[in-house]
Write a protein that binds this DNA or RNA. Structure first.
Lengths: 135, 135
DNA sequence: CGAATGGTCAACCAAAAGGTTGAATAACCT
DNA sequence: AGGTTATTCAACCTTTTGGTTGACCATTCG
């Protein structure tokens, strides 16, 4: 029982990388600010300052969040001129998605649900971190 | 741009709950020991001591990990006699899965990939936390 | 009953996470 | 060149996380 775990020395490094990657991806996704950022980037690439604008948090903090997302492979950042453009890398989520889906067949994505989800989380994060101006 | 974020006061509590749930799920998944535990439970329900057995870590530590997983809704624990049975709740991952899939259409689950993934991560976690006995 | 087993609790600790501020670097604009 | 804008760095602080140990409760067994 559960004892039948085999070991392959040659796969070691690769396996380790996968585990590390999952660590990075899931812990990146564990923060609501970072999830909100990803949702924003889903609409369009953005420069760091623009990413930061909706949050009531220092630019440095956002910069750190972006670094976390980049380390996880969830976004890339490319400097053009003095702006650094942040771009979503949706493919990176695939590893995590594959892992999760192994635990059950989840229904094939209801996009409406997802939209609601995003909008909801966004308002929550913003309400919690920034006073919402209705001007 | 990105400024069109609407607010619905009535949805507030519910939204907040969703965000909290995603926080809990993703941060629970961010730890390799906890992912390994989930993978073990995929095969069968297990009592706490049996869950702990493969890891070189105190029972108390595993107990805490299980509490984290339970708070995230990823497992349930039921005490029967003096054993506490841990049971996977794969459904809980659906929320997170829906969220993630919104970022891209991932290929419809290659089970072989998943098996490799699990086995790989398992060996890695065990190698890192416990000396592997080949007896 | 008393002893062993299964599991958690409480106190503690080190390291990591998430934030701040102020200074530094880099690129653009007169 | 000098000023402004975009972004990061460094030092610092507080809270959370992941682990330890030892005492404690609950349940079964002899």
């Amino acid at each position: 029982m559960t004892g039948a775990i085999h070991r392959s020395a040659t796969k070691g490094i690769y396996d380790s990388l996968m585990s590390v990657k999952l660590d990075a991806i899931f812990s990146a996704l564990a923060d609501p600010t970072r999830r909100a950022i990803l949702a924003m980037l889903l609409e369009d690439d953005m420069a760091v300052t623009d990413v930061a604008e909706p949050f009531e948090m220092s630019l440095a903090a956002i910069s750190k969040h972006l670094a976390v997302l980049e380390r996880a492979g969830l976004i890339t950042q490319e400097k053009r001129g003095r702006l650094k453009w942040c771009k979503l890398e949706p493919h990176a989520m695939r590893e995590a998605s594959v892992w999760m889906q192994g635990f059950g067949q989840f229904e094939p994505l209801n996009l409406d649900d997802f939209e609601r989800f995003l909008a909801a989380e966004m308002t929550t994060v913003l309400r919690d971190t920034a006073p919402i101006r209705e001007d």
